[in-house]
Design a protein around this nucleic acid. Structure first.
Lengths: 345, 345
DNA sequence: CTGTTAGCGCTTTCAG
DNA sequence: CTGAAAGCGCTAACAG
């Protein structure tokens, strides 16, 4: 009967030294074995090492390895809100690209909290990841300066950050918003309400501005704008009702600045009995997996999110490899997916 | 004009030694400063160190630190499919718990690929994370044995793995399935089709069995089952049509084994003109944010996913702290959310 | 082909 | 109060 297992400490992990001595050789040879320089080893030795590794269930410590080499082959991804399908698709794109490059992705969700963002930024940096892809909440002076200095390669997704010069991958917001607005106009809508979460983010600002500008081209039509917090459905309700009252005999439509908001708007409309595609037009940025299932369907502006993530990593790798080309701002085109919610009323 | 910046290497990061010499002291004192043993340092020295750190923008290397201490305060989360809202909520729960415990969460998405899962498992282990939460794709012998040995604390979410004894957090599938099935029966449905992705996973198996068992209690009703791949909408179409033909004059309903499948089913039904809540009942495991917006609404069985993630981390921490209590299998209760899709036909 | 040795950046005795 | 020195697990000269 084996009572080998005493209540000792749970057996510390085997180190390269343990393997070496078990294989009756030096650490160097083991290291060589591990690093593909096997052609330098005699078959006999290889055998012994192999056995020793298996026996001890040895796993090299990446910590030690990276400490030595200075390279980690790790990429950090900071995501503002993992709840958002947009972010998830970005992540999948980054991930696929990483895999292809033999990099490993570490994902950090900031939950839209600035402090978390700072925390993770520091963490990743202190673990010496090779680079970071950031879908930022926003950044303040302190975070910026420390990041700017730490020469950590970095690329931003979707959101530009003021005073922070850095590659950015995003949507061509001007183009997309123009298309979206024009579509509504073409469909015969006469009063359009642009709904947004607080316009704190560059992206939203550009969309709003472009919307306003585009609307000016048909001065007889009415442009409105409203700001709501995602959780303030009462406020949203009021906004919608008010909009309806102000343009009782016009053909009305709403533009939602992003997917999360579109969901809330749809819920609210349903609650107060506004039927999209009939009482009011509805169009949202970001495609939604359920867009076709909701009533007559919801028209959306789909972003090539996956590709954007993929491209972001590509750009990052360039920087990691020391590219000195000037700051890039790559803007992807969106795709308007027309569904029932913007049919002529 | 500053031409200070030559094309040299981009200035290696400052190390603790740099700080020490800049502060005209030894590494030890700097280390002490960093680790809150400041009461041991004279004010003058503290000052100098502080200045040096700021000047050099010094950030301690976690790599080196962990190498020394053997502890990382890192938790790994392996997620089978980040695309799944279920997983995202789990993640948020784990994350919240981590934050509260001062742990940092590293997320790895396996994209439902077994190889990725293996890769990440090794990676996390080689980075010496303190523990791992796993929403597994599945595991084979090799992965199991190496994991079993590496005493890495670990807890499984949602899915049990054969031959792998480990804490598991999940839904009370038997209870939930019973409730779900009974609900359909109570609403007067007479033929029920249980639709599932391939039943390779324990969870699905239990749900299916319980469904079948529960149906036996009303022998005059008809229980059917079908298996579909998520991307095989043609197959699904056939299944649905076939089901309809076989029970032309019965009240028919479908149960979907998870949220991802529910989406596909809803799309397919719409495509072939089956209206849920009218032509056929529909009920799915996992609540969906859009469930109320799709037609008359879709009845779902909501899991306390966030809580499950939170609890998983709690259990993991216990293990990390060396708890020897026997393997736990904590099963949460689900909540049936009734919507239009299961109204009596 | 193989092993010895010197660090990577940090913490921690152990002497001042 | 302060610092020199040893060593965490690993890799990479540099000798055999």
């Amino acid at each position: 009967m084996s009572r080998a297992k005493t209540t000792q400490t749970p057996a510390p992990r085997a180190t390269i030294r343990d393997v070496a001595s078990a294989a009756k050789t030096g650490k160097t040879s083991v290291s060589r074995y591990l690093n593909g320089e096997q052609h330098l080893l005699s078959d006999a030795l290889k055998e012994r090492i192999e056995r020793a590794i298996a026996l001890l269930d040895y796993q090299p410590s990446q910590m030690a390895r990276s400490l030595k080499s200075g390279e980690t082959r790790l990429i950090g991804l900071i995501i503002a809100d993992i709840t958002n399908p947009y972010s998830v698709e970005v992540m999948r794109g980054v991930e696929a690209a990483c895999r292809q490059q033999g990099l490993t992705l570490l994902v950090c969700n900031t939950n839209n909290e600035f402090n978390q963002e700072k925390h993770y930024l520091q963490l990743l940096s202190s673990y010496r990841v090779d680079g970071i892809v950031v879908n930022a909440v926003g950044m303040r002076e302190d975070a910026i300066s420390s990041l700017q200095q730490s020469q950590l390669p970095m690329v931003l997704i979707d959101r530009k950050v003021a005073n922070f010069s850095c590659d950015v991958i995003g949507l061509n917001n001007a183009e997309a918003t123009t298309e979206v607005t024009q579509h509504l106009l073409d469909q015969g809508f006469e009063a359009i309400l642009f709904l947004s979460e607080p316009v704190t983010i560059n992206t939203r600002l550009v969309r709003l501005h472009t919307f306003l500008k585009q609307m000016q081209k048909e001065p007889q039509k009415f442009a409105e704008q409203g700001e709501v917090e995602l959780n303030d459905s009462a406020g949203l309700e009021k906004l919608l009702l008010n909009f309806t009252e102000r343009y009782p005999d016009k053909r009305r439509a709403v533009i939602s600045v992003n997917g999360a908001l579109t969901l809330v708007i749809a819920r609210t409309m349903r609650k107060i009995g506004i039927v999209w595609g009939k009482d009011m037009g509805l169009l949202g940025f970001d495609d939604l997996e359920w867009a076709e299932l909701a009533g007559v369907g919801i028209t959306t502006l789909k972003q090539p999110t996956y590709d954007m993530g993929y491209a972001a990593l590509g750009q990052l790798v360039k920087r990691i490899q020391g590219s000195d080309e000037p700051i890039q701002e790559h803007a992807f085109s969106g795709e308007l997916i027309v569904r029932g919610s913007t049919q002529p009323i």
